[in-house]
């Protein structure tokens, strides 16, 4: 690999009480890459994403972002370092308007470039522009998902974490999201690390991918390589009817 490493996880262990949810995970994401993480229900994908943001915290191992150890950094400092996440369950600010939610997303930048950035996400999601003053909590499920992704984009992150971005979105919009990710990656060099249930789309989109089973990485390779593996296809691609 020639590209500069942006994110490195080494031997990361995360516990919930006495339950070991991540069992020593190693992950590398290089600058400008799209990396996917797939795995079954309960494998620990969301735990991994949240551990990157320091909540829950890794109990053992190291997370290095852009040469800086962020393992024990408070969450808001991790965000300031340039990592943004669209988390599982969306977690939008229900009582704030769509615009205010986006302002919160941009707060890391203290409002710089706000006007330009909001137009950019409105261009991706015209629905959000129509509803700019609607309260976040009254948006439809899919609209909330769009808002969560848009909010993450507002901080101009160097690393964008997406936990199931296609969740609750109509088929047309899912395509749009994947195209947008590819587009941002190509035009702005945005680095993306995403979790997806829609493994087929994810593996096609991603340069590389990891397979997480029971809190441990069992396979890694390029998207195409994994698509070809029979065990991956059996476990994550086929409906099995």
């Amino acid at each position: 690999m020639t590209a500069k490493p942006l994110l490195t996880m080494r031997g990361v262990e995360t516990w919930y009480g006495s339950i070991l949810a991540l069992k020593g995970v190693d992950i590398d994401v290089a600058e400008g890459e799209i990396v996917a993480l797939i795995g079954a229900n309960g494998a620990g994908k969301s735990t991994l994403m949240m551990t990157l943001c320091g909540s829950p915290r890794a109990r053992r191992g190291a997370i290095v972002f852009d040469g800086r150890d962020i393992t024990n950094l408070p969450t808001h400092e991790i965000a300031r370092a340039g990592i943004a996440q669209s988390p599982e369950g969306r977690r939008i600010f229900a009582r704030m308007s769509v615009r205010e939610n986006l302002q919160m997303g941009a707060s890391v930048l203290r409002g710089a470039h706000f006007a330009r950035d909001i137009e950019r996400v409105f261009a991706i999601f015209p629905r959000l522009k129509e509803r700019a003053s609607q309260r976040g909590g009254t948006l439809s499920g899919g609209e909330q998902q769009m808002l969560a992704i848009a909010r993450a984009l507002m901080s101009r992150p160097r690393l964008l974490l997406l936990d199931e971005p296609s969740l609750g979105l109509a088929p047309l919009v899912v395509k749009l999201i994947f195209e947008t990710i590819r587009e941002l990656n190509k035009s702005e060099g945005l680095t993306v690390f995403l979790v997806e249930q829609n493994a087929f789309h994810a593996l096609k989109l991603a340069g590389r991918a990891y397979v997480l089973v029971n809190g441990a990485v069992t396979m890694t390779g390029t998207g195409r390589e994994l698509l070809a593996r029979p065990e991956v296809r059996a476990a994550y691609l086929e409906g099995g009817h």
């Binding site: 229900n41 499920g141 969740l167 249930q197 829609n198 994550y236 409906g239």
Partner: peptide, 17 residues
């Protein structure tokens, strides 16, 4: 049921079916 399959992978969706 409001989107029962959201967040399930294809195999799990088949189980849901």
């Amino acid at each position: 049921l409001d989107e029962p399959a959201a967040g399930l992978n294809p195999r799990e969706s088949a189980g849901l079916n």
